[in-house]
Simulated assay, not measured.
Amino acid sequence: MTKIYANGAFTEEAWVRLEADAELPTQPAADGVKLMVPLSRFLADPERLVALGDGAAVLVAAGEDVQLLEPHLARLPRVLVEFPKFTDGRGFSAARILREQLGYAGDIRAIGDFILDQIPLMRRCGVSSFEIVKPQVEASLRAGEWPEVTHYLQPVGSVAEIPAGTRPWARRPSDLHKVDQAAE
């Protein structure tokens, strides 16, 4: 079982990663197991995966072009974005493209090797759920730890932000501004 963190709570789900050359099933698994289908395999036969509904999701590896999913996004309940190493930021770009440029409204799930400090930044880029594989990340989230990031050096279009200082690229959350005004 895989631990999933979303909306402040943990759930468990059973996922199987399908290989790129494997045959897609014709119907969802009866035991509730869901499929991670690589982008290339999905694009070879998108209708079969879409027919599985919530029983399957497209897995976008680091560096793959998420724009190839555009014609199918309205029918996909979930896209999995892989973070192969915590130092690899290509997943952030994929999530932003899905949310901001393609208008994807479904669940974007981060999977792979990421650390607690990255989760607020992933949320800011449009990620809505997380596959938790590191015990220390799970323990921190269960303890209510949430690293606060108060200033950003890159604006995003998916959250409300305001300029922070005189540099046009420096941003901070707009609700932080309300807190600052209330304290004055």
Rank of each mutant, 00 (worst) to 15 (best):
T2L: 10
K3P: 05
K3A: 13
I4R: 06
Y5R: 09
A6T: 14
A6Q: 15
F10P: 03
E12D: 09
E12R: 09
R17S: 15
E23H: 09
T26W: 07
T26Y: 05
A30E: 15
L35C: 03
L35H: 03
M36Y: 11
P38Q: 02
L49N: 02
V50F: 05
G53I: 02
D54F: 08
G55D: 10
G55V: 05
L59P: 03
V60I: 13
A62P: 07
A62N: 13
G63L: 09
D65I: 09
V66Q: 01
Q67M: 11
P71A: 02
V81C: 11
F83P: 00
K85H: 11
F86G: 06
G91W: 01
A95Y: 06
L98R: 00
R99E: 00
R99Q: 00
G106C: 11
I108Q: 00
R109D: 01
A110V: 04
A110G: 04
G112P: 09
G112T: 08
F114Y: 12
F114T: 01
I115G: 03
Q118K: 08
I119N: 00
P120Y: 01
R124G: 00
C125L: 12
C125V: 05
V127E: 01
S129N: 08
S129G: 06
K134Q: 15
P135D: 14
Q136Y: 08
V137K: 02
V137D: 00
V137L: 07
S140Q: 14
G144E: 11
G144K: 09
E145H: 10
E148R: 09
V149A: 09
H151P: 02
P155R: 03
V156C: 02
S158G: 10
E161R: 03
E161N: 02
P163V: 09
A164V: 04
T166A: 11
P168C: 08
W169R: 11
A170R: 14
R172W: 07
R172K: 15
R172A: 07
P173E: 13
S174W: 04
D175V: 11
H177N: 15
H177M: 15
K178V: 13
V179P: 06
A183P: 08
A183V: 15
